[in-house]
């Protein structure tokens, strides 16, 4: 893949995260704060972001499946054959713990690193260490 395409894809993805509010920990925590449902302070907007992204991505993935190959002729990866296992559940729990503590997941972490390097480095460096620690290989 051309690195220019990948850079542009990152730029567009990042812009989407900023425009949708995902880059703001306050906005994400406002969504995760289910204790606020009914108080008028709960912020359901991120659910709309997810629904919107799925509304675009689902038909695109379906289109790719029908074509059988990528537009550049590359092979499209098929769904993983491994089923639901303990690593998936355990990993998702750990991820949820971290996400609930700070309201930051990997994509927004990298966007926020560009927007405000400090204190984001305090999140991104441990994130990188964690990514390497959690590998199976």
């Amino acid at each position: 893949m051309k690195w220019t395409h990948a850079f542009l894809a990152g730029l567009v993805f990042g812009a989407g995260l900023v425009i949708s509010g995902m880059s703001s920990p306050a906005r994400v925590l406002g969504f995760l704060d289910i204790g606020a449902i009914g108080t008028g302070h709960w912020d359901p907007r991120l659910a709309l972001v997810m629904i919107g992204a799925l509304a675009v991505a689902t038909p695109l993935f379906a289109l790719g499946r029908r074509r059988g190959q990528a537009l550049d002729g590359g092979i499209l990866p098929s769904l993983p054959t491994q089923g639901v296992d303990r690593r998936l559940i355990g990993g998702s729990v750990l991820f949820g713990l971290g996400w609930g503590l700070a309201g930051i997941c990997p994509g927004p972490a990298l966007v926020d690193l560009g927007a405000q390097p400090w204190p984001m480095l305090a999140f991104v460096l441990p994130l990188a260490i964690g990514l390497l620690l959690g590998r199976r290989d």
Partner: peptide, 13 residues
């Protein structure tokens, strides 16, 4: 939080 997100997303792929 960063460490937990890193380990968790890596394990859960």
């Amino acid at each position: 939080a960063g460490l937990l997100v890193g380990i968790g997303t890596s394990m859960a792929n």
